[in-house]
């Protein structure tokens, strides 16, 4: 960690390396992001295994864990259905997956982890996946001619601006998520380090806002915008 100007050594929110190893002549660092993301993914896997086990013994009147699993799936399907209409069935899996992953990543700050989404290396791939989905669906449903026609709207001279607008989508998507979670992480780090003498119990309220509220809103926004862009790319067909 290099020296920050005002707060060197006091505020601690940077990504830190845990250990490094050499592979193909490159030095690769395992950072706190990898560790926290592994914990998040492990908890998701445990939930999935438990859900699968309870669904194998599914009953007509759900009870206990089956109830929770059905609630989550129905909720996510409802969200996708509400904004994608008849295309929902193809994308419900992907949207549900990133929804659960981003949500758990965002609220992992509550459990003392550094949220993995506060690392641009995590949010940029999510944005790039969305960009690939948009591009793929545009080519698939509108064909190359429709794609080129869309670029030349309203006049052919606007094509460069439309290209910039298309490329800006994954960048703005990923930066929005990253900056929101990072700002929460930084503010909590400031509270805990600079106000450490009086930071007793009341930072819990800040956690509720920065981790739970902001994290949930940003998760919803990321998925909502992904669905909107994909629906837009599919068109009216």
């Amino acid at each position: 960690m290099n020296n920050g100007i005002l707060l060197s050594g006091e505020v601690d929110f940077m990504v830190k390396g845990v250990f490094s190893y050499h592979i193909f002549g490159q030095e690769v660092w395992i950072t706190t992001t990898h560790v926290c993301m592994s914990i998040v993914i492990l908890s998701i896997i445990v939930f999935c295994v438990l859900a699968k086990r309870s669904m194998l013994r599914a009953e007509a009147v759900p009870g206990g864990f089956q109830n929770i699993a059905e609630l989550v799936v129905e909720l996510l399907d409802g969200v996708v259905e509400g904004s994608m209409g008849k295309n929902a069935i193809k994308f419900a899996n992907y949207i549900g997956t990133i929804f659960i992953f981003i949500l758990l990543s965002n609220i992992s700050g509550l459990f003392g982890l550094r949220p993995p989404t506060a690392d641009y290396g995590v949010t940029l791939p999510l944005g790039v996946i969305t960009f690939c989905l948009i591009f793929f669906n545009k080519i698939k449903y509108q064909k190359v001619s429709g794609f080129l026609k869309g670029l030349c709207e309203p006049w052919p001279i606007w094509a460069p601006i439309n290209v910039i607008g298309d490329v800006a989508v994954p960048i703005s998507l990923s930066l929005r998520l990253f900056a929101n979670v990072l700002s929460g992480t930084v503010m909590m780090a400031l509270v805990y380090s600079l106000l450490s003498k009086i930071a007793i119990a009341w930072p819990a309220a800040l956690h509720v806002y920065f981790d739970l509220f902001s994290g949930a809103i940003q998760t919803y926004v990321f998925c909502m915008l992904t669905m909107t862009y994909i629906t837009d790319a599919i068109g009216d067909k």
């Binding site: 929005r176 919803y220 926004v221």
Partner: peptide, 13 residues
């Protein structure tokens, strides 16, 4: 909330 979160982006930049 969706609109506000999108509008927030420029400030976050």
């Amino acid at each position: 909330l969706l609109g506000q979160a999108v509008a927030e982006t420029t400030g976050l930049y």
